[in-house]
Amino acid sequence: DSCIQFTRHASDVLLNLNRLRSRDILTDVIIVVNREHFRAHKTVLMACSGLFYTIFTDQMKCNMNIINLDPDVSPEGFRVLLDFMYTSRLSLRDSSIMAVMTTALYLQMEHVVDTCQRFLKTSE
């Protein structure tokens, strides 16, 4: 018996999901962050964020298609993390790293928080 493992399958799937997002195909939720609107796929959000997993597995909330985040959340931080969810690439600038970390903490994305903290330590 044999099997063929397509080593780049995960990144090919993620690229296609991001293409669907950018063309607004089958997006099923709008995340509102301080009046900025971000369209996305619930399944991708809940696969990447503990907060969205909790929201969309809650019978009372799973059918919501507009979610307003806490007013303290930064739109720039959320944009960086949403792009990360769909690309695996986390862009870090001096001007936004704290907003990204705070937003990641809020979204319950602990691995991103840990990595940002290690990045900060090494860059100090």
Binding site: S2, C3, I4, T7, R8, D12, N16, R19, L20, R23
Partner: peptide
Amino acid sequence: YEGVTTIKEMGRSIHEIPRQD
């Protein structure tokens, strides 16, 4: 996949969705 020979394929695995139609 214990005991199964695994061949690694480095090429693209699925179609690529275009940026726009």
